[in-house]
């Protein structure tokens, strides 16, 4: 576990939790990022603007950290080739929409409100991801 970063994980997890807590208490919404995107495709009148503001804030929040820390683009390490990224992106888009959530929707909001459905979804996508990584790294040796 050489790469384990517990302190930054605690702080980051707290910030993500506060984000979903404020969205729930202030606006009454329990949605993750894929749900926020799905609600824009197509946009519904009166329920679209806040989603765009959220996504803009999401990029700005990471941008602020990037500027503050001086991190460059090399912070992001990609194992995947471009064709894999396109396939993985399409699968992520289709899968989160059909499955009704992603890591934030099911994993944080859903488990946070003790939904068995979200726990099942989260265990399913972690298992599927682990299988793919196992095949890539330990069978194919990419």
């Amino acid at each position: 576990m050489e790469n384990f970063t517990p302190i930054s994980a605690l702080i980051g997890g707290g910030l993500i939790g506060l984000s979903s807590a404020f969205l729930l208490i202030l606006s009454g919404r329990t949605v993750g990022v894929s749900g926020i995107i799905a609600g824009l495709l197509p946009p519904e009148k009166g329920d679209a603007a806040w989603r765009l503001w959220f996504l803009g804030g999401l990029i700005l929040g990471t941008g602020l950290f990037r500027v503050g820390s001086g991190d460059g683009v090399e912070t992001l390490v990609f194992d995947a080739t471009m064709p894999m990224i396109i396939i993985g992106g399409l699968m992520t888009g289709v899968g989160t929409r059909v499955g009704g959530g992603c890591t934030s929707g099911h994993g944080v909001c859903g488990i946070g409100r003790a939904s068995p459905r979200s726990l099942v979804a989260t265990l399913t996508f972690i298992a599927a991801g682990a299988v793919v990584v196992y095949i890539n790294r330990h069978v194919l040796g990419v």
Partner: peptide, 14 residues
């Protein structure tokens, strides 16, 4: 729920 999450998870792992 199960199929969608499995497809998403595979894309996530990719």
């Amino acid at each position: 729920l199960l199929g969608g999450s499995a497809v998403f998870g595979a894309g996530w792992g990719l």
